[in-house]
Structures are given as structure tokens and as C-alpha cells.
Amino acid sequence: MLSRTFIAVALPLSLALTLASCGGGEAAKEASATSEGAGEKAAHIDEGKITLSTDQIAAAGIQIGRPTIGGSGTIELPATIDGDPQGTQVVSAAIGGRVVALTRNLGQSVGRGQTLAIIESREAASLNAEIEAARARLALANSNLSREQRLFAQRVSPEQDLIAARTAATEARIALRLARQQLAAAGAGGGGLNRIAITAPISGQVIGRSVVLGQTVAADAELFRVANLSNLSLSLNLQPLDAGRVRPGAAVTVKAAGREATARVSFVSPALDTNIRLVPVIATLDNRQGQWRVGEPVTAAVEFTGTGTGGDGAIRVPSTAVQTQKGKTIVFVRTRTGFEATPVAVGDRSGDSVIVRSGLKGSEEIATTNSFTLKAELGKGEAAHED
């Protein structure tokens, strides 16, 4: 009789103490009041069964959910958003000079071929002068060629003079083309013989600018950084075991600050990073709405493929729902009167979940959070029975 009375009041009293230690003053009072009415709302343990009312479950902070069926699980880990390597371009000066104009600032959009800056340089003047000289030489060569063709047709000039004139015209044309290409490589359209324009190689946004107006820059110095941010990259690092269950095309759920989106795995490295001994993984994130930023830390949930343990019909439960009691792995299944400790056989872990091989059908309601409280009460009840 004594042991039954002890069992009847043990669980509500322990719940009240637990809530009081966590700072839940009002909830603790309710749980204490519940312990006083142990006659009607008493909790007892009988062969792994724990009787709890709905109010007692809520007061203990025990959350209830259903197992997940299907898929092969996910793994949740921190990640960082990077710019797409194929969508980021460094804009540099091909020749040295002084910056006399800046047409774009940080964050502004720019189209491909649009001017970012204008540089004034002696070398630019030389390149433009070479084009003018090559153009004049070509005009002279074409004039000589026309004259030799006319004289050869009148049988006044020999054929070798015509051939020489044709060769000179061809060489002059090549020289002009080369001079234009050299100027194009350095920049064109600067608005003067001593100026060149620095243009954007791609369409996007200016995400970096390292010059100011009037600054003298050296050849090949970085002036701007332009990025097309419609697609971003997500950098992940997985354990080798987890990386073996991820394939290109797998979905990655990205979450941060009230935002959520789905990315797709585009690359799984065949080699480990020697510094951290993890496998680098890259996912592509659609950012046409502009809601993600380069360098932003996020949480990524990577979906495993069906090749891992568990298959597409696997039953998965949160790892917080699984407890060990006397060498047995158990999950607390919700009943009409409370919970029942149900033995299960578990398989591999999939991030924050565990695959259940047997013991559950998948349709049960289980304790997913604070299940350790039920485990503690189960142990107390078994100890009371032994007394």
C-alpha cells in the first residue's frame, strides 16, 4: 500500500520540481496543485506505462509528434553563402594611369560593356597614336595598290610591282587590326587620345571598389569586383560517411532569419579537405529575389539520397525521442492515458534524426522533446516496485 501511494505522487511531484528549477513558476504551482489531487489525476507506472493527463504533459514541456516516413533523412549543419565563382569577375586596369572618372559605386548595377571608370595615361596616348598611324599607312597602301592595279591593266607596270603593292596593303591592314586589338585589351572609348575606358565584363552588381577619383593605379591593379548575384553558392563541409550519401541534385533547405529557400547540390568533392578532414560540398542557391547576401551564415539541411541505410520507406524519429533503459532502446509512445515505453531497434543516424528499423509502424504519436523526463520517472517507478 505504501509503495502504491509513493508511485501515485512521485511523478507529479518530480515534474513540479523540474519546472521550478527551470523557472516555470506558474507551471510549477499547477503541477504542485496536481500532486495534491493525486486521487483522480495520479500518475502511475505499470510495466513501462506512465499515466499522465494532458495538463501534466504540457506542464512538463513534453512535445508530441509523429515519426517521419520516406526519404533517407537529412542532416542539418551550419553553412556560408558565397558568390558564384562563375558569376564573379575582377575588373583591373591593363595599363597604368590616373583615374579621372568613376561611373559606378558599390551596390550599383552595371551591364556588360558599360563603363566603370576612365583612366588617363601616356600609354593610352601611345596606343591611340599607333592606331592613327596604322590607319594612315593602310590608306597609303590601298592607294598604291589601286595605282599599281591600274598601271598593270594598262601594261605600264610589271606584275611584280602589283604583287608588292598588294602585300604592303595586306601588312598595313594587319598592323591596324593589331593596334585596335591592343587598345581594346587596354580599354576603349575613353573620350580622348590619352584616355581609356574600363568596362564591365559581365552584367551584375558592383560588390567591390578599391580606387578613388584621382588615384594613380598600376597595370593589372584590381579596380572593381562585379558579381552576378542571381545565383549564389552554398559552402558545406560533411563527414565522409554523410558525404557518401549525398549526390549532385540533392535538395538543401536553407534557413536564416525568417527566410527559407531550397538549393541544389552541384558538387561533392572526391577528396577530403586536408585541414579539417571533411568533404567540401557546394550547392547552388537561386537568388533572383535578392533575399540572400554573400558571406551570410545560414543553417542548411541536406537531403540524403536513397542509397543509404533505410531506403525510401525508412521510419525516422528525432534523436531526442530515443532513450536507453536497462540496455534497451525505447521510444515513449502516446496512449490514451499517458505514454508507454516501446522497445525499438535503431539504425543509422541521419543528422538530428534516427532511423527506426523495427518497433514502430510510423503512425504512432511519440514524445519528441523532454522524453528524458519520462525515462527518469520510469526508473523511479521500477525502483519503487523493487522496494
Rank of each mutant, 00 (worst) to 15 (best):
R209T: 02
H44T: 08
A383G: 05
E365F: 14
A345S: 10
I163C: 00
E132L: 08
S350W: 00
V265I: 12
S3G: 00
G311L: 01
T305A: 15
L241C: 08
V100S: 03
E30I: 03
R173C: 02
R195E: 05
Q291Y: 08
K328T: 12
D242C: 09
V90C: 03
V110K: 05
K255R: 15
G327R: 06
V294F: 10
V317G: 01
A243F: 06
T369V: 11
N105K: 12
E296L: 15
V156H: 01
E30H: 05
P67V: 02
A367Y: 03
K361F: 10
R349S: 15
R173A: 15
R357S: 12
P297Q: 04
R177D: 13
A93L: 02
V254F: 00
A301C: 07
S350Q: 09
S143D: 12
A184N: 11
A42H: 08
R357M: 06
L19Y: 02
S371G: 06
A345V: 14
I174P: 01
K49S: 12
G25T: 14
T18A: 10
G87I: 01
L272I: 15
N105Q: 11
P12M: 00
A261G: 02
R150Q: 13
S269Q: 09
A16W: 06
N237S: 14
R166D: 08
Q182D: 06
N275F: 12
I174A: 15
L278A: 15
T115S: 14
I202K: 07
A59S: 09
D273Q: 10
V265L: 07
D273T: 11
G189V: 09
T18P: 02
L193T: 11
T167K: 09
P78C: 03
I207Y: 06
E76Y: 00
A125I: 00
A117F: 09
L213S: 14
T373R: 13
L77I: 11
L17E: 13
T335V: 05
R247V: 13
P85T: 12
K326V: 05
T199P: 01
A261V: 03
V217G: 05
S358I: 01
R137L: 13
V331R: 02
N370T: 05
S203M: 03
R264M: 09
E30P: 00
A314V: 01
T170C: 00
A383P: 07
A165K: 03
R147A: 11
G192T: 04
P240R: 00
S353Y: 04
A153P: 04
A136D: 10
I202G: 04
E386F: 10
E364N: 07
T284L: 09
D161T: 05
G73H: 02
A185L: 09
F372V: 07
A16R: 04
A8K: 11
T68V: 14
I202W: 09
S269W: 09
A60M: 14
A168W: 08
E120I: 01
T262E: 07
D82P: 00
L127M: 10
L52P: 13
R135D: 11
E303A: 15
E130Q: 14
V99P: 08
L116W: 08
A188P: 04
R112N: 11
V298S: 11
V265Y: 08
A321W: 11
S319D: 12
I95R: 02
I118D: 06
A164R: 05
I119N: 03
F267R: 13
Q149K: 15
A179F: 06
V333K: 04
R316A: 14
D46L: 06
Q181S: 07
A257R: 10
